[in-house]
Design a protein around this nucleic acid. Sequence first.
DNA 1: GACGACATTTTGAGTTGTCAAAACTTCAAT
DNA 2: ATTGAAGTTTTGACAACTCAAAATGTCGTC
Lengths: 234, 234
Amino acid sequence: MAEQAPPTSTVENYLKALYVHQQAQPDALVPLGRLAQALEVTPGTVTTMVKGLSEAGYAQYESRRGARLTPTGEKLALQVLRRHRLIELFLVDIVGYDWSEVHDDAEILEHAVSDKLLDRIDAMLGHPTTDPHGDPIPKPCGTIRKQNVQPLVQTPAGRHQIAQVLDHSPRFLDFLRERGLVPGAGIEVIGRDEVAGIVTLRVHGGGEVIVSLTAAGRILIATPEEATVTDPET
Amino acid sequence: MAEQAPPTSTVENYLKALYVHQQAQPDALVPLGRLAQALEVTPGTVTTMVKGLSEAGYAQYESRRGARLTPTGEKLALQVLRRHRLIELFLVDIVGYDWSEVHDDAEILEHAVSDKLLDRIDAMLGHPTTDPHGDPIPKPCGTIRKQNVQPLVQTPAGRHQIAQVLDHSPRFLDFLRERGLVPGAGIEVIGRDEVAGIVTLRVHGGGEVIVSLTAAGRILIATPEEATVTDPET
DNA sequence: GACGACATTTTGAGTTGTCAAAACTTCAAT
DNA sequence: ATTGAAGTTTTGACAACTCAAAATGTCGTC
């Protein structure tokens, strides 16, 4: 019955990285080498740490195969994600940051903001459900809304609305902002040319924009219904 | 020419504590035992750390006598203090905290807020010169305005203005707030009774308040002129 | 000057997180 | 089966910070 110390910010980062990589391929173990890359530490370090996470009950570790989060670990990861995304939105809406510059600050503040302050921020923002990039903000209880979206690259011609942007690099975000391609913006998909490898679209109240198929894969479009889904086994 | 790593938050805290204790008795060495109390660590730990601060050029350490900040250390301490106080004001003015609850959050955030964010906060607040308790906010260059103040307990009868509050305990601050005794408030000192050990005063637009001489020692009153003083030897 | 009381320093040890480099699987391909 | 490439784990080490408890220094007093 050892008293559980609050997780360190390092642990929170491992959990977050584990969560993100797990999303890409649910119910596959995350190889530790991939984590090492994501966290910018050596593989040996990850092995050591993940064993610790496993002992602490946050992850399930299979030697030489990889790791996945336990329900406890996933809940914690989602709380960190909630912090991160609320802080990003706070920096944009209240402090006046551009959406391309929030990441680094949020990455640090997510480990420093108290629950009390997070609640105030949440209230100031009107209990938002998505961050500046359109990523869903987990609820305090560890529930995350699964958005009904599809990549722009797969979207048929016609009128649509941008829901989310997957590439958070400043350059890409600056490009999008300059053209009004932000979550919530209405657009009309004009056509896709597989040979040229481009998608052409018109922005509501803006001009025509041409992006590569690759770029179009990093822009998500809202599709009809949305539903709230609780995490499995939590 | 070893590349100087940025100071850890632990180092920042030692520097801050050193600065505060140094203020009480300038040009006296701060005994390490006192630091140990303030930082809530054992004396041995402080000895080790202060030796490190000395090696890093932040402090001057005389064995068994105590330590004081070097100009470099003092500048750093003032930057930490600047962070702390700007964050406190931000939490009160922007986020809606009460002045009695800002301390703990600021204590953590002062080590997490980037220079960029601090600049934005400073601008949002209109480059303020004092925090919610009336403490002066150091300038970015490491200059601090020396306020012209005197303890309420020494203030003659008559009309005055509250400048600063030294006791930051929530209970004391709640007491003051309920009675309107906040920095900037106008008051009239009615009298001091040495035998009873009390000071009687009336708050502008408020009622009469009686406080002990002790409490009156923790409330500072603005006196005529103020001057900006740069730190010596910086 | 010797003695205590008290503060400070030393010593030995532990925790967390990290690395470099050697040792070790695993697995596909021969 | 054997081999080699690639990924993973182990080992030994280190830096920062901390503690407990023993050793040491300082100072005022008798």
